[in-house]
Design a protein around this nucleic acid. Structure first.
Length: 390
DNA sequence: CATCGGATGAATTTGACATG
DNA sequence: CATGTCAAATTCATCCGATG
């Protein structure tokens, strides 16, 4: 049976070895891995504590006898330091029952290779981690638990495939056969996707991927009729909006726009204060997932002559969402009050840009919104749509 | 607003090699 | 073989942004 001092000594030495250049074979000189006994056991040199002194010495003697370490004592049998015998690593790992980092790395690399082609986000992630392993840096989102890591990769893979609005626990059951597993890896999955993908906002990643906690609603009001399973609802006769559960969106047979335009509004408060008899206003509940996109496309398809506007925050996130919306629906949304004039009108409500805002805006600077974005960058301002009076 | 993990650069330690 | 020097490697301190 292995003693606790032996384990501490060996693990410390192995830690040093696994962090070293020798480990990845890029050392330019031969390295020895040694630790001072006094640094490991502060009581070793305390003469009043004979137990520790003797225990540590026994441990060292055992390890030396097995030729796992090399150590020399002075005449009083006091060891200054111990050196790892790297010729015997295999046996040493077995002795302390520790999984070699090389094995962990190769297992991780196998998983990375398995998932790297699944989607763009994973491709980018796997590429970066491959490089990090090569440089002996830590692997992002890997906390030394291979099983959890595999679940994470699987979750990211499956998340990107979800086509219809799915409850998080249903997703977990389908993918992991267990309703709780996804809950555990979800924060990591979200961070990974946010860091390596292109999403407007961290807390909307799951929503955008069609994963929701509760049913979500799409709100409608204004100039239009909708027909749900054969029942016609005249929105113009309602005093306010109606919300349709996203599970029911596919039951909508027709949407007839009688006004001149459709407008999607990003923010719920703005949606409620919006009033225009000529427009059908839609609040998408913050998410732009495929159920909603199909719904918008259906409206477009049934009302091909209708103009589509989008009204969102005048900041990086707002323009990202607009771009996203246009790309994913193929509809040429026209920005509504997302221009320089609006910023100037509401100048006193603008906020200053954070560094993060600036970076994201710069990436959008050569899009078609370039003039607004450059104005925002030059004047260091952004505007939330709640500030805008309708 | 305290705290945490990760990145970076400076300071210290270590080892290789040469020399007397 | 002790000692000195130089380059390499490791440790430490500090900073930064993200997060609760």
């Amino acid at each position: 049976m292995i003693g606790k001092y032996e384990r501490i000594i060996i693990n410390k030495l192995i830690d040093k070895y696994e962090k070293s250049k020798s480990f990845i074979g890029e050392n330019k000189v031969n390295q020895k891995f040694s630790v001072k006994i006094s640094a490991l056991f502060s009581k070793y040199n305390d003469h009043s504590n004979y137990e520790v002194f003797q225990g540590v010495n026994e441990a060292i003697d055992v390890l030396v006898r097995k030729s796992f370490i090399i150590a020399q004592s002075n005449t009083a049998h006091v060891y200054n330091n111990v050196v790892l015998n790297t010729d015997n690593l295999e046996a040493i790992y077995i002795y302390v029952d520790r999984v070699p980092k090389k094995d962990i790395n190769s297992a991780v690399i196998r998983l990375l290779d398995e998932y790297k082609e699944k989607n763009e986000v994973l491709k980018e992630y796997c590429l970066v981690q491959h490089e990090r392993i090569h440089q002996n840096k830590s692997i992002q989102f890997f906390s030394n638990d291979l099983k959890e890591f595999k679940n994470l990769l699987l979750a990211v893979d499956e998340l990107m495939k979800v086509q219809t609005e799915t409850f998080a626990r249903d997703f977990s059951v389908r993918v992991f056969k267990d309703s709780k597993v996804f809950e555990r890896v979800a924060p990591k999955a979200v961070n990974l996707i946010f860091e390596f993908g292109n999403y407007p906002d961290r807390d909307q990643v799951l929503g955008n991927l069609n994963i929701v906690k509760n049913p979500t609603y799409v709100n409608l009001k204004g100039a239009g009729y909708i027909t749900i399973n054969g029942q016609l609802i005249d929105l113009t006769r309602l005093s306010s909006d109606i919300g349709i559960s996203s599970a029911m969106l596919t039951d909508i047979d027709r949407v007839d726009v009688i006004g001149k335009a459709v407008i999607t509004i990003e923010n719920l408060t703005s949606f409620h204060s919006f009033s225009n008899e000529d427009m059908l206003a839609i609040y998408l509940g913050g998410y732009h997932n495929s159920v909603r996109r199909e719904f918008i496309k259906k409206i477009h398809h049934q009302n091909p002559k209708t103009v589509f506007y989008h009204f969102g925050d005048i900041d990086a996130g707002g323009f990202y969402i607009l771009e996203h919306l246009k790309n994913q629906t193929g509809i040429d949304f026209i920005p509504f009050k997302m221009d320089i004039e609006t910023i100037k009108t509401y100048a006193k409500y603008t906020k200053r840009l954070t560094e993060n805002d600036k970076n994201r805006l710069r990436r959008l600077a050569d899009s078609q919104y370039g003039t607004v974005i450059n104005y925002m960058l030059e004047n260091n301002c952004k505007l939330e749509q709640e500030a805008i009076n309708l």
